[in-house]
Design a protein around this nucleic acid. Sequence first.
DNA 1: AGAATTAATGGTATCGTTCACGGGAGTGAT
DNA 2: ATCACTCCCGTGAACGATACCATTAATTCT
Lengths: 331, 331
Amino acid sequence: MAGVTLRDIARKANVSVNTVSRALNDKPEVSQQTKERILTIARELGYTRNLVARGLATQQSHVIGVVVSDNVNPYFAEVIRGISFVAQAKQWTIFLVNTYLSRSTERAAIETLAQYRVGGLIVFPLDWDQIEEYRRYGLPMVVAGARVPEDKRPAPFDVVAPDDRNGAREAVEHLIRTGRRRIYYCGPHEDSLSGAPRWQSYVEVMEEAGLKPALLPVSDVSAFEGYRHGMAWPDLEKADAVFAFNDLIAFGLARALTERGVRIPDDIALIGYDDVEFARYTSPALTTVRIPKETLGQQAATLLFQRIEGDFRKPSVEKILPTQLIIRETA
Amino acid sequence: MAGVTLRDIARKANVSVNTVSRALNDKPEVSQQTKERILTIARELGYTRNLVARGLATQQSHVIGVVVSDNVNPYFAEVIRGISFVAQAKQWTIFLVNTYLSRSTERAAIETLAQYRVGGLIVFPLDWDQIEEYRRYGLPMVVAGARVPEDKRPAPFDVVAPDDRNGAREAVEHLIRTGRRRIYYCGPHEDSLSGAPRWQSYVEVMEEAGLKPALLPVSDVSAFEGYRHGMAWPDLEKADAVFAFNDLIAFGLARALTERGVRIPDDIALIGYDDVEFARYTSPALTTVRIPKETLGQQAATLLFQRIEGDFRKPSVEKILPTQLIIRETA
DNA sequence: AGAATTAATGGTATCGTTCACGGGAGTGAT
DNA sequence: ATCACTCCCGTGAACGATACCATTAATTCT
């Protein structure tokens, strides 16, 4: 049914396969007349062009691979939307793979993408060491969501990341400015690639203000983790604010705290991170640090296409996107 | 760098390309000795197998296409996770495409997937008429998220859908049972493929109870739409409950109502739909109808693989997944 | 008019695999 | 010693497209 090939069309139109190819690709070296004839025959036969074969012949792909830890996280979902837009504009397709926070899955995912000879990769990495091995595939790659560690500069690939140091700083400073003193951080800390900058900034600001940092460590960044910690938190009364790694955790925390009769923000103020679409619809609406997620996706994709379309040599860039403190009702 | 082919390995190992292929695919027709020799050479050369070429040669793909309207919607995100699991177990990859509610994008998306010769499709359709044209590609296809309309049975493809008729019925009955009388429905209605069953059930139950149905029509199914309607709603005091098409709308509505000083559930009760992961963490926690989203994804994928692996003939099945009313705090 | 250019097409190799054959070497049976 | 059979491996043809080079016919130039 869909097994129609150029040859079939060629036979029926009494021309060579070559001419058919030219006609279908709208190349100028075919007469208008035969072009039209071929096109109608193609339509009649129900021809669908075979991008696999073309990919093999041209040695290039119109697909980019995108690797995230979990597409259910609205942060990634929105970034993907950004990538989607610029890819769609270029007529490229997206191979989406979730790693579900497993390093081995990440490895396998990238391997698969390389095997499909994707034109390039956008990766939200789990850690930095592992990502360097992916250079072995020789694919254009943009790393997104995390800045290059000091000691690894310059990185051998482009990077797009939010300015987390500053974002976290503003958040914590805002808490202090509004009179909070016993501020906890809830999230992953130094070991985590994306957690580190926020945690470090938090510690910095706290110490500058002569305050003691305190950590509620989570094992993943879901709402459930936030909830779990909120419910299990023993010395709740010691806190008057929490800065959460992301909005999901903040939501979970908020729920737990309200269940336990803590008033937000009166007893405990709460600041999230990401500014997920949803943050403005909760009650109270979540104060949070906005990451321009769609922009991040777009920039990553744009950078990637620049590499794909030629500039292998150009030194790698690290693009830092400004964050913005969005003050709503929880702090 | 990644341009190493079977030929390169063959040359270096002094065997034929064929033998290399056999070795790398771990076929029995190669001696253990040469197999190992070839494998180490492959590793040395940094060989990465080319799945595009293989796909062309074997005439089969290890990719399925998944078409949803917006992966940012947590409903789809969770379904995709379900699909992901069974695909990953089978070593298949997913081509994810968003239609963003545009029928022409849906058409184009499917076309592209067909051009890549994916092994099969899982589609969350925008409407029913259009989906029938996709048969022309002759691909195994599972339609998910919406039941077959009465007049279109039997459908020429497998279908997996939640039992929306019953889900909506339970929700509205619960509202009535708890003393609500002026119950509004907020969502898309008959024109919408997924909206229709919920709306119809709602109307049915209302009329059975001698109540008048009332519609707050939305143009898309986002939280923002819910919010907008909540804020713009003139005769708010006429209502004592809302049954929302999905959780997102419910969230938006809830926010708007609280902003306007309406107490939930005291003044207005609220029931959502889907039971998005997030629903249990809002305050008040959302009463909603659970769709087994991951299961839905898994079933769709399983059904698809059954088709792919052989059974073209078997009559198409329509699998209906039970929903469950989850009573929390908003109703 | 002859040469040079251009337009439209065809032939053939190629991309990197897999697959259906075929064949030689070795083993065991008759 | 012949036959049958298994074990390994190579040859050559796909798969469906594109690309380079060649060819013919028509057109333009001098």
